[in-house]
Design a protein around this nucleic acid. Sequence first.
DNA 1: TTCATTTCCAACGGTACGGTTGGAATATTA
DNA 2: TAATATTCCAACCGTACCGTTGGAAATGAA
Lengths: 198, 198
Amino acid sequence: MAWDTEGTRRRLRDAALVEFAARGFDGTTVGAVASRAGVNKERLYSYFGDKKALWELVLATELERLASAVSLSGVGLDDIGEFAGATFDYHAAHPELGRLLQWEGLQDGPPADAIGRTRHYREKVAHFAAGQRDGVLDRGLDPAHLVFALIALAAWWQTVPQLAEMITGAGPNDQQECARRRRFVVEAARRLASPSRI
Amino acid sequence: MAWDTEGTRRRLRDAALVEFAARGFDGTTVGAVASRAGVNKERLYSYFGDKKALWELVLATELERLASAVSLSGVGLDDIGEFAGATFDYHAAHPELGRLLQWEGLQDGPPADAIGRTRHYREKVAHFAAGQRDGVLDRGLDPAHLVFALIALAAWWQTVPQLAEMITGAGPNDQQECARRRRFVVEAARRLASPSRI
DNA sequence: TTCATTTCCAACGGTACGGTTGGAATATTA
DNA sequence: TAATATTCCAACCGTACCGTTGGAAATGAA
């Protein structure tokens, strides 16, 4: 059996994602990650340095995946709706991401890659602002607020799934309700962004 | 100096709120709560039983305060906007609440007082549904989704304050930006709820 | 095949934490 | 005032956890 160093590293990273999402940094033990990966915990220290470094790597990796999976191409109402829908889809397919970001936000300290993420979001804001100048999107709302609100509409479902269940009565595996929520998110995004009728 | 049992209990509860909001259940030590309260930790066990019971009490107390502070009286668009605005205000004035609810949601186990909270939210859904039947609110959206979305628009700012800062560039103590956000939230709520123009 | 390197194994060491304890001090009650 | 109850104090106990360690086993290279 040849040494599969990269395989072992990947197993540890994957296990860490599951454990960190479930329990956060403080609640996750190095032993649990190693056990889930079927690896001795000493390997974790050898490959990643320490628990904190592994946390940061997992977070950075998940953020990269999100950024490359959800894009905003145009500035039409359909584009806005689809951005919200795609964000919803990604969060629904990756519930561990929302949990990770929540744990992150609740911890002390600056966000991971704050500069890169800020730039990424500001680009979206500029994109929206251009759509407003073109009269495609409503000019009456701050574009930054609009970006923020679209993410809220899309991500909140996975951020507080227990609240969603209390309000709608639907459990986490109800695919029809998930589809209905997506349609709602897309429609809500369009309403928010469309030029004012007042 | 007479024994101030109730005062000591209150100091412990208040200290627990601060510590639990900051660090969550797992990250909070009983010693830190007692130290913040200026009380020996043995008193905490005497008054509240254990750490878990104190957590549950703090959570229940904060939920009661929220429920009695934010109400939805009518079903007009102004009422909807004001509900969203009042929710925003409460969260802005009590950042520890959002943090507590997040920590709660991330923990294993059912939400505190799930039955009571479910009833409370379902009443709001019914309220919205009545507004839809009266033609005051848009009939094209699921009222449960609408309730959920309004809470999202109002509460997301305090749920992910670091994201808000990355997107808007405004720090946590910018009162003018806070007022702008509230106006946005009220306007967004009205747009979502108003009868369809399509 | 031998030597060097990496991985595996499981125990270790030091620190932290929840909950408990016994005795002293203080407040309350009769 | 004496007896009783409560609070204060700080140490204790058992468990958990991060990061490290030394030696054995396995792999890779010459």
